[in-house]
């Protein structure tokens, strides 16, 4: 085992940059996210969020700058990063043609849980989500909202230090969307850092801090309350609009 990171920062990045040819997708972003924090990573389409996230998840090498995730270096310790994070998105989360139980076993197995741990985790997870009757049904037959709640629980089945959530609530009904955030709060209470992107501006308010990317740069970073003060806005929707309408590039 590696020694635990010296600081209580889950993510630290300094002037992190990604260049594709003559296009600078991510332009010197600097931010740090505390262990257990709920961090909203916002930006217009094409602002560079996905590229930045891919670097932080150990899926793509930066062109310049430094970053550590869970204490591991994004250049040299990509595999370590992958073992210590969870990831879910709206697009890919679970295997539709496996049952709920099979998905749990599959992902738990990938993250190296023992059979004993797997049994305990499966039971705990199915009870928390109230899915006893559905445990042996195919994931494809579940409503999207249930699927997303299950996907989140599976993404943190190995108790990672950080979970990356890429538009986890897109298309989810307003009641289930709020239940999803209850799961995020519960994970944060257990010390898991939640790094989340969303197009729902009311959800930005549920974050401890929020960054807003415009054209590859982090243009604003603070708590929702402070951002609203700074931009003389009543809502995060207004803050976002003020910052992002000046964007030069599309997706």
């Amino acid at each position: 085992m590696q020694p635990p990171p010296a600081s209580a920062q889950a993510i630290v990045c300094h002037e992190l940059t990604k260049q594709f040819g003559d296009f600078r997708a991510v332009d010197k972003i600097t931010l740090s996210v505390a262990q257990g924090e709920i961090f909203g990573f916002l930006g217009a389409n094409g602002a560079g969020k996905t590229t930045a996230m891919r670097m932080l998840c150990g899926l793509s090498y930066p062109s310049a700058g430094q970053a550590t995730v869970a204490g591991f270096d994004v250049y040299r310790q990509q595999e370590k990063i992958k073992q210590n994070i969870g990831y879910m998105s709206q697009k890919f989360s679970l295997y539709e043609n496996l049952t709920i139980l099979e998905n749990i076993e599959f992902f738990g197995g990938i993250y190296g849980l023992s059979n004993q741990q797997l049994r305990a985790k499966s039971e705990e997870l199915i009870t928390t989500l109230g899915l006893h009757k559905e445990a042996k049904k195919l994931v494809g037959s579940l409503p999207l909202g249930w699927k997303q709640k299950l996907a989140f629980s599976v993404a943190i089945i190995h108790e990672p230090k950080i979970v990356f959530l890429d538009e986890p609530t897109g298309g989810v009904d307003p009641v289930t969307r709020r239940q999803f955030w209850d799961l995020i709060y519960a994970a944060a209470d257990r010390g898991i850092t939640n790094f989340v992107t969303t197009h729902y501006m009311d959800e930005a308010e549920y974050c401890n801090r929020v960054s807003i990317m415009v054209d590859g740069r982090v243009e604003a970073l603070d708590s929702p309350a402070n951002l609203k003060l700074q931009y003389h806005a009543d809502s995060m929707d207004e803050v976002f609009y003020q910052l992002a309408r000046g964007a030069q590039r599309g997706e």
Partner: peptide, 10 residues
């Protein structure tokens, strides 16, 4: 407008 940011949606 699904998956489209708040500015483009407006």
């Amino acid at each position: 407008t699904t998956g489209v940011d708040a500015v483009s949606r407006k």
